[in-house]
Design a protein around this nucleic acid. Structure first.
Length: 586
DNA sequence: CCTGGGACTTAGAAAAAAGACA
DNA sequence: TGTCTTTTTTCTAAGTCCCAGG
C-alpha cells in the first residue's frame, strides 16, 4: 500500500518530539471502543493571521469628496470593505448596514462624528491599490514565486502536522481564519458584520499532558491548555458572529477521520439490510390514528425517497431562512390532484442548506397525498407542515428501528446504493476507458441530482463549450482529410501492388483510427460537460459515496483509479483503495 | 420534555496551481 | 514562455446530532 505525503528533502526547522512513521495502514490496526480518541497528541498550535499592514500614505480615503486620514483601526476595517468592492455583496442593503455599524465601532470618536453616511465613503483608491498588488503578485519572477512557495512549505512542515498516537498526521486547517467581513450565504441577516481578529488569548489548546505543549507567540498567553482525549480537535476558539466554536482538526487522510468515514458507510450498509422492513413500517404508519405518527411516517418517506436533510429548527433572525424535511412549511409545497397526466403530484419549492433551491415535482402515493392535505388543512403558509414533529423525535424513532440510525444515514445509503445500481446499469466491460468514465460520471451525476448538489454555472461555461465545439469541428475535418488520404492510398496500392504502398495504406488506416478515437474522446467530454453545467459532483463523491464501490468498479473494469480520484481523494480513500476487491458489494 | 452548547460532517465559492495552447 | 483554461486546494459557512442541565 502506498500512502504518500509530499516531503521536501531538507529536514524541517522543528521536529516533533515523538518518533513516528508516516506510512501506515490504520485500517489494519485495532480501534478504540470507549470514546477515547487518542492517547498521545502533540502539535505546534495554530498559525495566526499576519498582522495588519497600514496602507502607504499615497493611498487615500475620501469622505464626501474630501481626503481623510483614518486611524489604523478604522483603516483596517475599511480595507476589508475595499477588497470586496467589486463583489455583489457590497451593494446589498443588509451587508452595508451591518458593515457600517461594525465599522463605526472601530472608529475614533472624531471619525465617528464625521463619518455618518456610508454612501459618502470613497474606497476606490484602496480598491485600486489592492488590485495593483494582486497584479504585481502575478507578475513576480519565477525566483520570487519560488521563494514564497518555499516559505509556505516551511510553515506547512512546521505547523501542518501533528503527532497522534505514534503517527504523524496532516492537519486540515492549521491557519486561524483572518479577520474580515462575514459573508453568509443566501439572505443572511448578519452579512457584512466584522469578523474579529483572533488572538492567542482567544485560543484553547488541546494536547496530551505528556506532549511538548505548543508555545504562544512571545508576550502572549493561550486562553487555556486542556488535555481532553475524548475529542479530536487540537485548537478551538469562539467566533464572534454566531458565537459558535471553531476548531482545528485533522485532514481527511488521518486515522481519526478515516475511521469515522468508514464507520459511516458501514452504518449505511446496515441500513441496507433492514430498509425493506423500515419502509414497510412507515407505509403502515401512514394509516395510524395518531397524527404525530403519520407526520413522522410521511417525513421519513420524504427523507428516504427524496434524500432530504433532517431539518433542525433554526433561530429566527440569526441565519438565512432555510429548511430541511422536519422544518418544511406549508408554503414550501403545492399539492396537485393531477398534473401533466400524473395523479397526486407534490411540488416542492424551498431553500435548503446554503440557500440552495430545492425544486421538484414528485408523484406520491394517494395515502401520502391525503395525509399532506390533512397536515395542511387550516394552516397559514408560514406554519410548519409537520407541527407534531422535529428531528429529535424522528431520530429517536429511527434509533428504535435500528441501532445508530439517524436521518442522515438515509442520504448516505440512498446515494451509495444509487451509484452502485447506476454503475451496473450503465457500464459494460466492452466499452473503452473514456466511455466507461462518462458512464461513471453519469452514475455520479444521478446521485448529485438526488442529493440536490448544485453549483452556479461557471461564468465561462458558454465560451468553454464553444471552444470545445471548435476543437470537435477541427477534429472532424482532420478525420475527413485522413479518410481521403486513406482512400487515395488504397487506390494507389491497387495500381502499384508493391510492399511500400501497402504499408502506406496500413499507416493511413492507423491514422484514421487514431483520429476517430480522439474525436470520440472530445465528443464524450462535450457531453459530460454539458450535462454537468449546474451539477456539482464533488460533494457526493467526497461525502456520500462509499469509496469501495468506486474502487471495486475500477478494479473490475480495468479503469485506473487515478481516472476517478485525484491525489487528495486517493489519500482520503486510501483505506478503501487498499481494502476493496473487484467483487465488493455495498 | 426543552434549550443551548459542543463536536463533528457536509457544502459551494473562491483562490491557487497545473495544464493546454499559441 | 506567457496566457488562458481547467482542475485542485483552500476556506469557512452551514448543516446534523448528541448531551447536559433545568
Amino acid at each position: 500500500m502506498t500512502f504518500e505525503f509530499v516531503w521536501i528533502p531538507k529536514p524541517p526547522a522543528f521536529s516533533l518530539s515523538a518518533t513516528v512513521s508516516v506510512e501506515y495502514a490504520w485500517w489494519e490496526e485495532e480501534r478504540y471502543t470507549d470514546g477515547v480518541k487518542w492517547k498521545f497528541l502533540e502539535h505546534k498550535g495554530p498559525v495566526f493571521a499576519p498582522p495588519y499592514e497600514p496602507l502607504p500614505s499615497n493611498v487615500k480615503f475620501y469622505y464626501d469628496g474630501k481626503y481623510m486620514k483614518l486611524s489604523p483601526g478604522a483603516e483596517e476595517v475599511a480595507t476589508f470593505f475595499a477588497k470586496m468592492l467589486d463583489h455583489e455583496y457590497t451593494t446589498k442593503d443588509v451587508f452595508r448596514k451591518n458593515f457600517f455599524k461594525d465599522w463605526r465601532k472601530e472608529m475614533t470618536s472624531e471619525e465617528k462624528s464625521k463619518l455618518t453616511d456610508l454612501n459618502k465613503c470613497d474606497f476606490s483608491e484602496m480598491s485600486e491599490y489592492f488590485k495593483a498588488q494582486s497584479e504585481a503578485r502575478k507578475a513576480m519572477t519565477k525566483e520570487e514565486k519560488l521563494k514564497i512557495k518555499m516559505e509556505n512549505e516551511r510553515i506547512l512542515q512546521e505547523y501542518g502536522f501533528c503527532v497522534m498516537d505514534n503517527h504523524k498526521e496532516r492537519i486540515a486547517n492549521f491557519r486561524i481564519e483572518p479577520p474580515g467581513l462575514f459573508r453568509g450565504r443566501g439572505d443572511h441577516p448578519k452579512m457584512g458584520m466584522l469578523k474579529r481578529r483572533i488572538r492567542p488569548e482567544d485560543i484553547i489548546i488541546n494536547c496530551s499532558k505528556d506532549s511538548k505543549h505548543p508555545k504562544p507567540p512571545p508576550g502572549t498567553k493561550w486562553k487555556e491548555v486542556r488535555h481532553d482525549n475524548k475529542v479530536t480537535w487540537l485548537v478551538s476558539w469562539t467566533e464572534n458572529i454566531q458565537g459558535s466554536i471553531k476548531y482545528i482538526m485533522l485532514n481527511p487522510s488521518s486515522r481519526i477521520k478515516g475511521e469515522k468515514d468508514w464507520q459511516k458507510y458501514e452504518m449505511a450498509r446496515r441500513l441496507k439490510k433492514c430498509v425493506d422492513r423500515i419502509r414497510a413500517q412507515y407505509r403502515e404508519d401512514w394509516k395510524s390514528k395518531e397524527m404525530r405518527i403519520r407526520q413522522r411516517a410521511v417525513a421519513l418517506y420524504f427523507i428516504d425517497k427524496l434524500a432530504l436533510r433532517a431539518g433542525n429548527e433554526k433561530e429566527e433572525g440569526e441565519t438565512a431562512d432555510t429548511v430541511g424535511c422536519c422544518s418544511l412549511r406549508v408554503e414550501h409545497l403545492t399539492l396537485h390532484q393531477e398534473m401533466d397526466g400524473q395523479e397526486y403530484v407534490v411540488e416542492f419549492d424551498f431553500l435548503g442548506k446554503d440557500s440552495i433551491r430545492y425544486y421538484n415535482k414528485v408523484p406520491v402515493e394517494k395515502r401520502v397525498f391525503k395525509n399532506l392535505q390533512l397536515f395542511m388543512e387550516d394552516k397559514e403558509p408560514e406554519d410548519d407542515l409537520f407541527d407534531r414533529l422535529n428531528t429529535s423525535i424522528l431520530n429517536k424513532h429511527l434509533q428504535e428501528l435500528m441501532d445508530g440510525l439517524t436521518a442522515k444515514v438515509f442520504r448516505t445509503y440512498n446515494a451509495s446504493i444509487t451509484l452502485q445500481q447506476q454503475l451496473n446499469e450503465l457500464t459494460t466491460s466492452e466499452d473503452n476507458v473514456p466511455a466507461k468514465i462518462l458512464s461513471y460520471n453519469r452514475a455520479n451525476r444521478a446521485v448529485a441530482i438526488l442529493c440536490n448538489h448544485q453549483r452556479a454555472p461557471p461564468k465561462t461555461f458558454e465560451k468553454s463549450m464553444q471552444n470545445l465545439q471548435t476543437k470537435i469541428d477541427a477534429k472532424k475535418e482532420q478525420l475527413a482529410d485522413a479518410k481521403r488520404e486513406l482512400k487515395s492510398a488504397k487506390a494507389d496500392a491497387k495500381v502499384r501492388r508493391d510492399e511500400k504502398s501497402k504499408k502506406a495504406v496500413e499507416s493511413k488506416k492507423k491514422a484514421v483510427q487514431r483520429i476517430e478515437e480522439q474525436l470520440m474522446k472530445l465528443e464524450v467530454q462535450a457531453t459530460d460537460r454539458e450535462e454537468n453545467k449546474q451539477i456539482a459532483l464533488g460533494t457526493s463523491k467526497l461525502n456520500y459515496l462509499d469509496p469501495r464501490i468506486s474502487v471495486a468498479w475500477c478494479k473490475k473494469l480495468g479503469v485506473p483509479i487515478e481516472k476517478i480520484y485525484n491525489k487528495t481523494q486517493r489519500e482520503k480513500f486510501a483505506w478503501a483503495i487498499d481494502m476493496a476487491e473487484k467483487d465488493y458489494e455495498f
